[in-house]
Design a protein around this nucleic acid. Sequence first.
DNA 1: GATTTTACGTA
DNA 2: CGTACGTAAAATCT
Length: 813
Amino acid sequence: MLVKTEGPPNARIFLVGEAPGADENLLGRPFVSHAGKVLDSLLSYAGINRLDCLVGNVAREQPPGNKIEFFFEDSKCTKPKTLMLKYVNMLQQEIIQYNPNIVVGLGATALWALTGMRGIQSFRGYVQECTLVPGKKVLCTYHPAAVSRDWSLQFPAVMDLRKALRNSDTPDIPKDTRALRCNPSKREFIQYLQWLTFDWKDPIALDIETKANCHIDILGLAHSPNNAISFEILSGGRPKYEPREELEIWYWLSRALEVRPSIMHNGLFDACVLWLRNRVLTKTIFADTLIGAHVCWPEHPRSLGFLSSICLNVPAWKHQQTLTPTLYNAADAANTYGVWEVLSEELDRQKIRHTFDFEMSQVFPAGMLQLQGISVDKESQNDLLNSPKQDDLGRVIGIRPRLSLLTNEINRILNKNVNLNSPKQLQQVLYTDLGLPEQYRRRASINDPRKVTADSEALQKLSKINDNPALTMILEWKKLDKLQQFVDVTTSPEGKVHTSYNITGATMQREAKGLVVDDENDYRSFGRWSSSKSIILPFGSGNLQNVPRAARKIYRSPTGYSFISADYIQAEAVVVAYIINDLQLIRMFEDSFGKSRQYRKENNLDVHRITASQLFGIPIDKVTPDQRQVGKTLRHANNYSAGPGVLAAKLGIGMKEAKYLMNLYHQRNPMLRIWHQKVQNELRSTKILYNLLGRKHQFTERWSDELFRSAYSYIPQSTVGDLLNMSLVKIYNNYGDRIDIALQLHDAVYVIVPDHLISWAMQVMRECMLHPLQVNGMDFKIDIDFSIGPSWGEMEEVEYTDYVKSNLPVLPN
DNA sequence: GATTTTACGTA
DNA sequence: CGTACGTAAAATCT
């Protein structure tokens, strides 16, 4: 059945979808199916009444199998068939006839029909001119069916519709009033920098483009959202100016950045490059739009293109990058300025500027950590990799010789050469050649399909039911092969490795086609830093927060210096105890605060022993090590609402026993379930939670157990993350000249200090780290433990009180 | 050649 | 039915 456009003929907004589905076909009306319901909900969030709009589709009848490709010659939908051309023509006539103020295209097909463009992700959210009916205003966004499939698209779709509503008052296409000046002469550019330095009083936006090895290619500056200038430093990868001339540019840029606060998008990168390559110090990063977006909308994409599409009324420009790089760069700078103005208001509206200021304070320490790097000891590295020495059991120690020995042995037993890194080949060996029972991966949800796996958990299980020696050898090989990746790392000419600490969490940048692009996928980011490969100094294994213990020995402090680590003790457990008001645990944490490990042990001040004693109803000093282990695993599993299957696997017991233990645990600790219920209630209205330091997170997942589990972990995890970062900033700001911060590991900070400063450093670090937290009307602090060692891998626990005798920090000469 | 899947390291 | 993160290699898609 042909589906006609419907709605008031004098409507200001014309909503255009793709093609009718089954329900539409049946009723002869557009958007009446599930996608129609989603559309209604998106419109209502945007403040639009569907009855005020014209609603229709590009294609007027349902394609077989709902496949839009039906209307095209090719699978990429670039060459329309005659039928499709007829429909596009009909749409054109309708737009002319009804003459709405704005046409809103829903989905890729509508975008193509209205503007001739491809790629809804790149061009959604921008007000542009319709090519189908020249002079007509168009804005495209995601199709409701796409939103329904991927809920994370809801936010941009609603923001786009709001923009469409704002633009529906008049048919005028907003004029782009920006003055984007490209390629000024060197003289003009320097005059501009001087003008910024002496005559301009407001912040300036800055953006750099870089070529190979992060050398600055183009420099963009803006002094308002409407005024930007872009200047080329390199041409075809070669300097355009004599060193003396270039120096003049850097000098005046430094002068400008010394007095003008700067606005940047991911300024940590720009500031690091400016300092490393050109010794230009960005003295005041006044505002960072990446950080602003992370604080305002942590769950959403935050590339500059996306933010501009949400916040501004400018045309899409990201596609200009290759052809007109300076224009692109100037637009980057101007739009950064514009986005910041919107974000700044949003920070106040949401009352979360304190979180923004806190994240901004982390920029310099994080940048310093990236540029400084950490030294690799070649001798330890070589030893670990190649040592021919043997251990007590006569096995070679070196990773490489051990690996090749194992490979030979495994191939001999299996009687074929197997690539053990290939899950496919390994499955073939295990389940076909050896005929072992298939093992399945644990599912995220009971509804997910079962999948065969050959991971280490599967191998472990198989090795218990089958005595083929190859199984344990494969396990050892896999472990060692992984370890090798962390030990066999390339270092910089200075013998260092570097990592990029990302304040805004989940990876923002990834290399593709030699360009740095923003990743528009998963955005969770609970406020903890992530660590990834530094694009500026790409040496080492990248992420330094997941280096295995066994590989840490290669990171050694210079002679006369030591590593000190300070880690929060049982940090998440402490937070949970106070939140759920577990009085017994709270008392235990208070009794053990500031006490030595020995004291804690002698007085049974141990979470897991307490759990076991509650569980088995026995006195705390009668708890056996096995019972303590049960207590530990159970607490862990329950804190994050794991299922009995996991517990059964971890403790090596049956499902029935596991269920019994879990029930018993909850009977003895009813507060946990009550708190979980409370979290669910808080989620119900807005899906917003706050951690103990006032960091806000709005969850986007649909109402499900997965959402709950994610939410239960949010408060303790992000509180501890923020706490550690707060401490790290304090250590950097107050003592950064003497204490070299080396690593950030979520709940621990590692520093390198001269040996004679060890006791002083421990004292001031402790002072920086014991920050009070509040919950349920209680004040509390999370205690810290220290370790010291000559390398990251050889740290020994030490007692604070053994090192620090006085109460006042005294700096030795 | 680009993208997705599988696996695995840390807190 | 722990969550959070990043990277490498294989498998798969186009």
